[in-house]
Amino acid sequence: MAEGNPANVVTFRGHRAQVYTVAWNADGRRLASGSADRTIRLWNLSRADDNRYSAELRGHNGSVHQVAWDPAQPDRLASVSTDKNLMFWDTRVGQSTMTIPTQKENLALSWCPRGQTVATITQDYKCYFFDVKANQMLPSANLEDDVNDVQWNARGDLLFVATGRGTVNIYTYPELECIHTLHAHTSSCFVLELDPTGQYLGVGSADALVSLWSLTDLACVRTFNKHDSPVHHVSFSMDGRYIASAAEDKKIDISDVETEETVHAVPSTTNARSIAWHPTKPYLAFTGEEGMGYGAKGVVKLFKMES
């Protein structure tokens, strides 16, 4: 195992409070982050130490809990917040193009690979869908309650749903017919991630484990025991070779998908609230903090992995 070299970690400063989410756009040219300071920032990777080279998006009236880029249009971004709004942004002009009020606070969202639908997860752990092209909320989904995360497959015709009962339910989309249930963990499944090659599904759980499932036969092929606390974040590298995970133990682990060997332990002094691999480079973005107590400010960090 190699300890992450601090010289390979670049820090992005500019947010005034905790950072909850990071996400790369489809072509990897921009990194977005959302914060408790109610703003979204778009970062210029070449000028990380100077926040004048980041763009700030304002419009939410609450903490920004998650951002997601349109997979089909690299300039369009969606965000959800504690203000009970789902917002869409045109990042070319830095303005919101649409605000969708919702009945509950939205904690997470996922964008269908085809670009036409966004799923949100609300504070009461229910899932709702919004048709981007038709500009309307779809009828309430007939999914079970206690939903923690949703992800589509690459074709957008299957929906994977992580539940608080330790299962992953697989639905056809848009029919939302449950066709299979993976009994993945002994406690809540918090996060799902499909690898870019289409071979595997990664599942992070409250039992401190990450399980890896074959998408061919829906069997568990291996389990990663790298943490001492619940795993809330999982992300695959651009080639599917590595899987990164972050938990409540202030650890960010990068392991080889096939051998399970830890290849890097990324230095972090706080619990990462979000992690995301760059779509074409061996760069892992994650959230962090600088300072102590009420004076602490959220930052975004970029680990540049050495070969």
Rank of each mutant, 00 (worst) to 15 (best):
K84Y: 10
V80E: 01
Q73G: 04
C127V: 14
P71S: 14
P74Y: 03
R76W: 10
S54E: 03
D49H: 11
P113V: 00
Q136S: 05
N135Q: 14
N106C: 15
L86C: 12
G62W: 02
Q123G: 04
T120E: 03
Q73F: 06
N51P: 00
R76M: 15
S81T: 07
F130R: 10
T122K: 07
G115M: 01
I121H: 10
R76P: 02
D49V: 09
S81Y: 06
F130V: 08
V64G: 12
I121V: 11
K84M: 12
F129D: 12
N61M: 04
N44A: 11
L86M: 11
A55T: 15
M98S: 08
M87K: 14
N85P: 00
N51T: 00
A48I: 01
Q103N: 11
G115P: 02
D49N: 14
S96C: 13
A119Q: 15
A134T: 03
N51Y: 01
Q116Y: 11
T91I: 15
R52K: 14
M137T: 09
V93D: 07
P71A: 14
P74N: 13
F129W: 12
L109N: 07
T117V: 15
K104W: 05
H65F: 03
H65C: 05
L86A: 09
N106K: 08
Q95A: 13
D70F: 09
T91R: 08
K133V: 07
D83T: 06
L138E: 14
F88P: 13
S81E: 06
G94Q: 07
G59C: 00
D131H: 06
H65N: 09
C127N: 03
D50V: 03
A78F: 11
L77S: 01
Y53W: 02
T122S: 15
D90R: 02
T82N: 09
N61P: 01
Q123E: 04
L109K: 04
D75W: 14
Q95H: 12
A55F: 08
S79P: 02
A68Y: 13
A134I: 04
D124A: 02
S81R: 03
T99I: 10
F130E: 09
A48P: 04
I100W: 05
Y53E: 01
P74T: 09
Q123S: 06
A72R: 09
R47M: 06
D49Q: 11
K84L: 08
S46I: 12
D70R: 02
K133G: 05
Q73E: 07
G94P: 05
W89M: 00
N135E: 15
V64P: 12
S63L: 00
K126F: 06
I121D: 05
W43K: 02
L45F: 02
K104E: 09
N85T: 12
W89I: 02
W111C: 10
M137N: 04
H65V: 02
R76S: 07
D131W: 02
K126Q: 14
T82H: 06
R76Y: 10
Q103G: 12
I100R: 03
P113D: 01
S96K: 07
N51G: 01
W69N: 01
S79Y: 00
M87N: 12
M137E: 00
A72V: 04
A108V: 10
E56I: 04
L109C: 11
F130H: 14
R58C: 07
